[in-house]
C-alpha cells in the first residue's frame, strides 16, 4: 500500500482480530506511523467493546439438568453407534464371505491357487523320470488326499466328472504326490482345461527325454504357469485343435 493511503475499517478490524494474514506487519507499521489510522483503530476497538458490553450479562443458565440430558442423549447415540458398528461388522463379514466365495477363495480354475498349490517335484533325475513305467506317470491321487485338496479349495461336493484332480507338475515329469502339487482343475470346462494340459505334459516329457529340454526348467515353468508354458511351447495363444479333445486322464468321480 502507498504511504498516503489509509487502512479501510475492515482491514483495521481484521488487524484487531489477528487475521491480517501476510500483510499484518505492513499494516501494523502503517498504523504505527499513521495518526488517522491509529485513531480510527481505537474508535473501532471502542465501538466493538461498547457493543459487547451492551449485551446483557445474564447469569449463566443452570447447567446440571441440561448436562444430564445431554449425557443421556449421548449415551443413547453411543448405543446406536455400537449397534451400527455391530451391524456393519456383520455386513462386512457377510460381504467378506461373499467376496471370499466368489473371488478370493482358492479358484478351481485353469490355474491353481499358488498359495495352496505351488507345485512340488520328487528328487528324480531325467533318466529316472524317463524310465518311469507308464502307470507311475499317470497315477491317481489317493482318495484321502483328493478329499483334502477339494476341502482346501472349498469345494464341498464336487460335481461328478466336473474336475480332474490334476498334478501341477505331472508325475510323468517328476511331480510329487502331495497336496501342494494337486488342484481340482475343470475337466473339460473352458479352453484351458485338463485335456489341453495333458497334451502339453505329454509333449514336454517327450522333449525332456529326448534331451531337448531340461527337466528342472520344465518343472519350474509348469509350477509357475502351465498356460504360459503351453503358449510358449506351442507358439499359440489358444490351445491347438488337436489338443482340445485330447483324452488321457479320467475325471474325478
Amino acid at each position: 500500500m502507498r504511504a498516503h493511503e489509509h487502512l479501510r475499517d475492515e482491514e483495521l478490524l481484521l488487524l484487531l482480530d489477528g487475521e491480517a494474514g501476510a500483510r499484518e506487519q505492513e499494516w501494523i507499521a502503517h498504523v504505527a506511523q499513521c495518526q488517522a489510522c491509529g485513531a480510527r483503530r481505537a474508535q473501532l476497538e471502542q465501538a466493538m467493546a461498547n457493543w459487547v458490553a451492551s449485551r446483557p450479562s445474564t447469569a449463566p443458565p443452570a447447567m446440571e439438568q441440561p448436562l444430564a440430558n445431554l449425557r443421556r442423549g449421548l449415551e443413547t447415540r453411543s448405543r446406536h453407534w455400537l449397534r451400527y458398528a455391530a451391524a456393519a461388522c456383520v455386513m462386512a463379514a457377510v460381504a467378506g464371505g461373499v467376496l471370499w466365495n466368489t473371488h478370493l477363495r482358492a479358484p478351481a480354475g485353469p490355474l491353481p491357487d499358488a498359495r495352496l498349490t505351488p507345485g512340488a517335484a520328487r528328487a528324480l533325475t531325467r533318466d529316472e523320470v524317463c524310465g518311469l513305467a507308464e502307470e507311475d506317470g499317470e497315477r491317481r491321487a489317493p482318495v484321502e488326499l483328493a478329499r483334502r485338496v477339494f476341502r482346501d479349495y472349498r469345494i464341498a461336493r464336487p460335481r461328478a466328472r466336473a474336475y480332474e484332480l490334476d498334478y501341477l507338475i505331472s508325475p510323468a515329469l517328476g511331480g510329487a504326490e502331495e497336496a501342494r502339487n494337486l488342484w481340482p482343475q475343470p475337466y473339460a470346462e473352458g479352453i484351458w482345461n485338463s485335456r489341453v494340459k495333458d497334451a502339453l505334459e505329454d509333449d514336454l516329457r517327450r522333449q525332456v527325454c529326448s534331451g531337448a529340454l531340461e527337466l528342472t526348467s520344465v518343472q519350474a515353468e509348469l509350477a509357475e504357469d502351465w498356460i504360459a508354458t503351453y503358449k510358449r511351447h506351442f507358439r499359440s495363444e489358444r490351445p491347438l485343435a488337436e489338443h482340445r479333445g485330447f483324452m488321457k486322464d479320467q475325471a474325478w468321480e
Binding site: 479501510r8 475499517d9 475492515e10 482491514e11 478490524l13 481484521l14 482480530d17 487475521e19 474508535q43 473501532l44 465501538a47 466493538m48 461498547n50 457493543w51
Partner: peptide, 17 residues
C-alpha cells in the same frame, strides 16, 4: 469469508457509533 465478516462488522459498528 473473513473479509466479508470484517466488512459486515465495520458497517454495523459505524451505525452503532
Amino acid at each position: 469469508s473473513l473479509g466479508a465478516v470484517a466488512a459486515s462488522l465495520a458497517r454495523s459498528l459505524n451505525k452503532l457509533s
